[in-house]
Design a protein around this nucleic acid. Structure first.
Length: 425
DNA sequence: TCTGGGGTCCTAGGACCC
DNA sequence: TCTGGGGTCCTAGGACCC
């Protein structure tokens, strides 16, 4: 059994906390943050949770509740959250030698060796204090010999306030006590479907899963669930990954603010998604060979006829030039578009990535030759657009973008735009 | 009227080869 | 006019995560 010690540091109500941070007047106000298009609730402050707003509910279902209790809603402001996240992560990196940034609001830390100089709980508390003081964000810390147990320890730290926001779960008896209290659905990697199937076999609690025979689980489920069983028993099977693995695909897709029925508007939307995806591709310093374009009507509406389709193609050689993908995507769209539907969402996907310069073209391929001047043009575009969004764009993206998503409740870009810095009065 | 977006991993099954 | 079995590669779809 490998003898690592992991900590999971997770920001409390991250998006809602970011919004509140710059609005001291909202200390005790219930706040929610909405998904793109202001569609559903993706984050809730503790006050909003207390009032019964559930994660992921469509806004129209809780509108009454929000009005009744004065719950304030914000559109999601990713520029702000990404910037705050970076501050949290670099603080963590200054406190622990090995850090895996797991998501925008979570990181795994390798705490091997820490216990020689101070207790693990003390270390957890100091992480909490430093982040609170330097950044103003509250985090909880779960500590355990496997990532799956660290997740559960973190859950416990969030759930029970008397823990002080830090739970050390390195002791086997404490592990089993906690596992007995938690339903199997709380376990990392056990989603809705697996929960149901496990319950049918009489496995309701996390402890029952931990005590199941790994071979039996492997046969009835998969190696993934079997690994989870081992992790629940303190055997570390999922390593800490400091380096973000290179991406395998890039998707850019979005539901429209209003349904699209006009092909020209769809062209604009697809052009916009291609531009974003290609920019991301160049940031990853990769080239792609595969392109997919897809579109669909709303799967929730019973009055709209359902339609969903996608088409893909392979380039002769990998490429990261927006103009090449724009041309190809428009051709794919011609094959997908059917008049008369009310389209709700569309998107593009790039895949099959290569490092620049390593691809061997086939004998009969007609490789796209990327001239230096082409690459320079793309670099210049990216540079200008990073400094000020949408400085230059392709005409096909459209200047008005009437179809773009709703963000009616957006907070200012406090930390990423000089003109929107908070003012101390 | 109003239901997110962006990812990963695993598995099953078909095509194809010897 | 034979039709077994094993291997590999690819793709679609399912399940999960935040």
């Amino acid at each position: 059994m490998s003898q690592g010690i992991f900590a999971l540091v997770d920001c409390n109500n991250f998006y809602a906390s970011c919004e509140k941070l710059f609005r001291p007047d909202l200390v005790n106000t219930p706040v929610v943050v909405l998904s793109n298009n202001d569609g559903c609730v993706v984050a809730r402050s503790k006050e909003a949770k207390k009032l019964g707003v559930k994660m992921g509910v469509p806004v129209f279902q809780v509108r009454e509740l929000m009005q009744k209790h004065g719950i304030l809603a914000f559109s999601s402001n990713y520029a702000l959250y990404a910037d705050m996240s970076q501050r949290v992560m670099s603080t963590l990196e200054s406190m622990a030698p090995r850090v895996e940034v797991y998501s925008i609001d979570e990181a795994f830390l390798d705490l091997t060796g820490v216990e020689h100089s101070q207790s693990l709980t003390e270390f957890g508390l100091s992480i909490r204090q430093v982040i609170q003081k330097c950044i103003g964000i509250t985090v909880c810390v779960g500590i355990a010999p496997s990532k799956t147990l660290a997740k559960l320890a973190n859950h416990a730290a969030k759930t029970w306030h008397k823990t002080g926001g830090v739970v050390d779960l390195t002791n086997r008896d404490r592990q089993r006590k906690l596992l007995a209290l938690l339903p199997v659905s709380e376990v990392w990697g056990i989603g809705r479907k697996l929960t149901k199937r496990l319950q049918q076999l009489g496995i309701d609690t996390a402890l029952q899963l931990a005590d199941a025979d790994p071979n039996y689980i492997w046969q009835h489920f998969s190696v993934v669930v079997e690994r989870t069983v081992r992790e629940l028993n303190g055997e570390s099977c999922i390593a800490l990954e400091e380096m973000a693995p290179t991406k395998k695909q890039i998707i850019s897709s979005r539901a429209f603010g209003e349904r699209i029925t006009d092909k020209q508007q769809m062209r604009e939307a697809i052009s916009e998604y291609i531009s974003r995806a290609c920019k991301k591709l160049r940031q990853e310093q990769q080239q792609a060979k595969h392109l997919t374009v897809f579109l669909r009507t709303s799967p929730f509406s019973d009055k709209d006829a359902p339609y969903s389709a996608s088409k893909s193609l392979e380039l002769d050689s990998p490429c990261s030039d927006t103009r090449v993908f724009l041309t190809k995507a428009m051709r794919l769209l011609d094959g997908l578009w059917v008049d008369g539907y009310r389209y709700a969402k569309a998107g593009v996907m790039l895949a099959d990535f290569y490092d620049p310069g390593v691809y061997q073209p086939g004998l009969f391929d007609d490789p796209i030759v990327q001239k230096e001047s082409d690459q320079a043009l793309m670099q210049l575009m990216d540079k200008l657009n990073t400094k000020h969004a949408n400085t230059i764009f392709f005409a096909s993206q459209g200047a008005k973008q009437e179809w773009s998503m709703k963000r009616e409740l957006l907070s200012p870009a406090y930390t990423t735009n000089w003109r929107e810095l908070p003012v101390a009065k």
